[in-house]
Computed example of a mutant assay.
Amino acid sequence: MTTEYALEARGLGRKFGAFWAVKDVDLKVRRGSIHAMIGPNGAGKTTCFNLLTKTLQPSTGSIILNGEDISRLRTSDVATQGMARSFQISATFTQMTALENVRVALQAGKGTAYRFWRPLGSIAHLNTRAMELLENVGLQDSAGVAASDLSYGKKRALEIATTLALDPQVMLLDEPTAGMGHEDIEPITELIRKVSVGRTVLIVEHNLSVVSSLSDRITVLQAGQILTEGNYAEVSSDERVIAAYMGGVEDAL
């Protein structure tokens, strides 16, 4: 790719009735970086995330992916353009095994996911790649375990594996450590660092220790608009950010 930025938002906005949930957001995510989006509750992070992934259509502005305007594309078309996302709530098929979940994602990437009447033997060749992806996220020993029986941390790892199955150039991770105990946060943080190699990652995350250890650059939202942007040292010392968090950022250092 020749463009410096893998993902951009230009004047991005979304209006619900008379209320602007996101307004005039200009965002540039540098290729090959891990870029975090943070902000207090109600700042518009999720809405902005949903706009970027086309879960919501923007009221104003444009979205540029790898130099191409994707503003009018459908959600299903965005994945074919090299961008995939995970969700704050784990989105796996609970009654399927870990291997089957990844295999379904691989089928989706190949456009064969919904050919239900094909014999299982016709997709057996996907098992090798599915096992490779499970190994990448440390779940090789859980391949035959139903997703519902996995620990919360392993469910998040499985979701990352299914996201990787789409072979995205740009990954958007929505609160990947939300609801985790301390024992799961560090492994998931290391996993994100590992899978980000050769990719661009945009992450929404409340845990500021995760943000500080992972992020190359941070965008802070407040009331649907960008408050400031910079590296962690710059952002965490900004008095406007400290005020927005009512002391939360300063206390987290």
Rank of each mutant, 00 (worst) to 15 (best):
T46G: 09
T46E: 04
T47R: 03
C48A: 15
C48K: 03
F49N: 04
N50Q: 14
T53Y: 04
L56R: 09
P58E: 07
T60H: 08
T60P: 01
G61S: 10
G61H: 07
S62G: 02
I63T: 09
I64L: 12
D69R: 10
I70E: 02
S71L: 04
R72G: 12
R72M: 13
R74L: 13
T75Y: 09
Q81V: 11
Q81Y: 12
A84Q: 08
A84V: 11
R85Y: 10
S86A: 14
F87Q: 08
Q88F: 03
A91Q: 15
F93V: 03
F93E: 01
T94K: 15
T94R: 14
Q95I: 07
Q95E: 15
Q95P: 06
T97Y: 04
T97F: 03
A98V: 01
E100Q: 15
E100A: 13
V102C: 04
V104A: 07
L106V: 03
T112K: 11
T112M: 12
T112H: 03
A113N: 03
A113Q: 08
Y114A: 10
R115P: 01
F116L: 15
F116E: 10
W117N: 14
R118F: 07
P119D: 08
A124V: 10
H125Q: 14
N127A: 12
N127V: 11
A130T: 05
M131I: 05
N136Y: 00
N136V: 13
N136P: 02
N136S: 14
V137Y: 04
G138D: 06
D141C: 08
D141Q: 13
S142W: 00
G144M: 08
G144C: 06
G144W: 06
V145M: 07
A146E: 12
A146H: 08
S148N: 11
S151M: 13
Y152D: 13
G153V: 08
G153M: 06
K154Y: 09
A157W: 00
L158M: 13
L158G: 04
E159S: 07
E159F: 05
A161D: 01
